[in-house]
Every structure is written in C-alpha cells, then in structure tokens.
Design a protein around this nucleic acid. Structure first.
Lengths: 136, 136
DNA sequence: GCTTGAGCTTCCCATCGTTGGAAGGTTTAG
DNA sequence: CTAAACCTTCCAACGATGGGAAGCTCAAGC
C-alpha cells in the first residue's frame, strides 16, 4: 500500500502521514527501491487511531501519550482514563469560556436596535470595557 | 506614554502593540527622537477596544471590520449587529463540536474501569473507529 | 518503444495569534 | 559612571494543517 492508499484508508492526508512519521508518532515507513513509502493494514490502524483521537480533540502531545499506552500491553487502564478525563476538563474549560463570550455577545446584540442608525451598544461596550456603561 | 506604559494601560502586550501597528490595526505611532514609540490616551482606547474584542473571541479579521465601523460615524448599527451575530453562530458551532467530543469521551470513560488492568474501552474505541464495538 | 497523467519524493512557505530571544541603542536612578 | 530597566528591529517558534514547486516513478495507452 502506498501513501495515497493509506491516506484514503485511514482518513489521514498523505501530508499528515509524512508529518506524523517525521514527528515520531508512527515508525519510519519502509520504502520501495524507488523510495516510495509502503504501508500495511497495521500502519493504517495506527493512523486511524490518531485520526480518531484528533476527532475527539486530543492534542498531538496527548495522542503521543495515548499511542504509548496503546502499544504497551502492560498499561493500566487508569492511566488512559486519567488522560481522557483531564481532556474532558480542558474541553469543559473551553466550552465555558466560549459560552461566556456567547452570552455577552447575545446580551449586547439584544440591546442593539440593528438598523441604519449609528449608535450601537456593541461598539460602546468594546470601546468602554473596564468602565461598564451601567446597562440596567 | 511609551509602549510599556501603553501596554500596561491597555492590557495588550508591547509585542502585540507593535504587531497590531505593523498589521495596520492602529496607525503608526509617533516616535521620540530616539525612535521610541509614544502613545496618547486615545491610542490606549483603541488598544483596549482590540483587547476586548479578542476577549469576546473575534478574529483579527473581524476586529479589523469592527474597528472600521467604530471609526465610521455614519455606520449602521445593523452592520455591527450582523457581525456580532455571525460570530455567535461560529461560537455555537464550536461549542456544539466540543460538547459532542466531551459527551463521547465521558461515555467512554464511564465504561472504563480505570484500574491497573490493561483492557480499556477508550483505547478500543480509538483503535476501532469506523467499526464500532457495539456497546449497547 | 514513447508519451501522458497520476502519484510519489523532498523542500519551503502560509496560516493564526502570540510569545520568545538575540543584539544593540536609550533612559533613569543611584 | 555604571547598572538596571527600558526601548528598537529582526528572526524564529508554537500546533496542526494545507499549498505548491521541482523532480522522480509508475501504469496505462498507442
């Protein structure tokens, strides 16, 4: 299997496969005499593992740790669970942050008449942050 | 006011002030004979505007548009509101995405005993995506 | 055989927003 | 006069991915 086929089979672009190899996520691929990388089903499996972890929002750093645990048959599932739950906490923090931004924006937008007139509480807030204008 | 004072007053790092100047978000600062940038209260105001917009998750591209509207006294508040609500939609999309990731991870973690044994449904899922293991 | 197109190789660059550092000049306080 | 704290410019990095150039290789058709 060459890199294009492995890419289609794994859902990881050829570009990223080379990148993951370079960065040490997957072992250096064997080459044909012409220098083409060759892959086996097993390699595609590892690539899909990476892909899936990315889809779940794990960083490459976390994925490196997950790959290490995956390959280690004597791993403790507690280690994996800890990693997953730590990531859940990160997600929670980011979700909360974005929800706060969203709430502020919606609130500001609700108070903006949104017509052709120039006065706009959204811009007022952006301009005057730190010294709130005392809405309500 | 030199760049360090402006940075402290605005909450924008000196590095970023130079960057925003370079990128055209703020006009080129005047210089002392020695080449030091000087700022006035008005400039700090603009920097705070940028800072506040960043805190609300606007991209620099969106901020450029907001600054344009801010400076334009004949703007229509509808334009600002549109921009804000579009950003709310972006936030909603990203929040939904992260909540989906979170839900999947929590679900997987719930099924992982998380002790010293090696078998782990989290790793199984990562390894076997596309061919679900039929939990439930 | 030869040509053509698709696929592979390495390499560098761009994104986005921000931070870090090096090398050097300036200002301020002691 | 010196030392610390500041400023300047320039170059590079992060994380993750994509784009593209220049050149080589493979598989097909004629």
């Amino acid at each position: 299997m060459n890199i294009g086929e492995a890419a289609r089979a794994s859902g990881v672009s050829a570009k990223m496969i080379r990148h993951y190899e370079e960065a040490g996520f997957i072992p250096k691929a064997r080459r044909t005499p012409a220098g083409y990388r060759t892959y086996r089903e097993e390699d595609v499996h590892a690539l899909r593992f990476i892909r899936r972890a990315r889809d779940l929002g794990f960083s490459l750093k976390e994925i490196k740790a997950l790959l290490g645990l995956w390959e280690n048959r004597r791993r403790a599932s507690g280690d994996v669970k800890r990693l997953a739950l730590r990531h859940v906490e990160e997600l929670d923090a980011r979700i909360a942050e974005m929800q706060a931004m969203r709430a502020t924006l919606v609130h500001l937008a609700e108070h903006c008449h949104g017509d052709d007139r120039p006065d706009c509480p959204i811009l007022d807030d952006l301009a005057g942050a730190g010294r709130p204008q005392g809405c309500h």
